[in-house]
């Protein structure tokens, strides 16, 4: 697993207080929102803050977030492209 993807999983678990999950529980392609990981709209906003704070990327179009935050994989690819 690439370092960025691992790092993202660790960050998400910590920042979103996913107390019952560990890095091994999140697959790169799992849907972050919906049944698999179960994030909600506040988590999405928190991820927007994380992108800006930790990676210097500002998501200006909230609709864009939906695609970017589909999975760890889409998020990692977005960061790799924009960082």
């Amino acid at each position: 697993m690439s370092d960025l993807r691992l790092e993202l999983k660790e960050k998400i678990i910590k920042q979103l207080n996913l107390e019952d999950l560990s890095v091994e529980d999140i697959q790169n392609d799992d849907f972050l929102f919906g049944d698999e990981i179960g994030l909600d709209s506040i988590d999405a906003l928190e991820l927007i803050v994380m992108l800006e704070k930790d990676f210097g990327i500002k998501l200006t179009d909230p609709a864009q977030g939906k695609e970017v935050f589909t999975s760890i994989e889409t998020l990692a690819q977005f960061i790799e492209k924009n960082a």
Partner: peptide, 9 residues
């Protein structure tokens, strides 16, 4: 310094 929506709520 990056206020957190999860705190603000």
């Amino acid at each position: 310094n990056f206020p957190s929506p999860a705190t603000f709520v």
